Simulated scan of single mutants.
Amino acid sequence: MTRFKIYQENCSDITVVSNLFIDEYMKDANDAQLKIYLYLLRVMGAGLSTSVSDIADQFNHTEKDVVRALKYWEKNRLLALEYDEAKNLSGIRLLNVSKRSANDVVALAPVVQLPSKQEAPRQETLNVKSEFCKPSYSLDQLKEFQNKEETAQLLFVAEQYIGKPLSPSEIKTILFFADRLNFSEDLIDYLIQYCVDKGKKDFRYIEKVAISWAQEGITTPKQAAKFAVKYEKSVYDVMKALGKSGIPTKAEADYILKWNKTYGFTKDIILEACSRTVMATDNHRFEYADSILSSWHQKQVHHKSDIKALDEAYAKSRAITPKPRNKNLDQFNQFMHSEYDFEELEKEILSN
Rank of each mutant, 00 (worst) to 15 (best):
K164F: 02
T125H: 10
V196S: 06
L271T: 04
R122K: 10
L94A: 10
S305A: 12
E343A: 11
D282M: 11
E63D: 09
K347F: 05
Q141Y: 07
E170P: 04
L95V: 04
L139K: 05
S294C: 12
L34I: 15
P221Q: 01
K316A: 06
I349N: 03
F286K: 04
T219V: 09
A315N: 04
I92C: 01
N352S: 13
K323R: 11
H61Y: 15
F21L: 11
T15Y: 08
Q331S: 03
Q58I: 00
V106N: 09
D189W: 03
M26F: 15
Q193A: 15
N326T: 00
I6E: 12
K208L: 11
P121M: 08
K244S: 13
D140P: 02
S245I: 05
Y37S: 10
R42Y: 15
V157H: 07
K316E: 09
Y340R: 10
M26A: 15
P248S: 07
N352D: 13
T262C: 04
A289S: 14
L166P: 01
Y83M: 00
E344S: 05
Y255T: 07
T266S: 12
V97C: 15
S49P: 00
S49M: 08
R68Q: 11
D202R: 05
L38K: 08
S138L: 08
Y236R: 07
L187W: 06
T220E: 00
I36S: 07
L34Y: 07
Q33F: 01
K347D: 06
R122G: 02
F59A: 11
D186F: 09
S167E: 05
K222A: 14
S291M: 09
Y161T: 02
D202Q: 05
N283P: 02
E287C: 10
E159A: 01
R3V: 14
Y83Q: 01
S294R: 14
E82T: 10
K117P: 00
V128I: 06
E9A: 05
N260S: 15
Y255N: 13
S167V: 06
Q113T: 07
S234P: 03
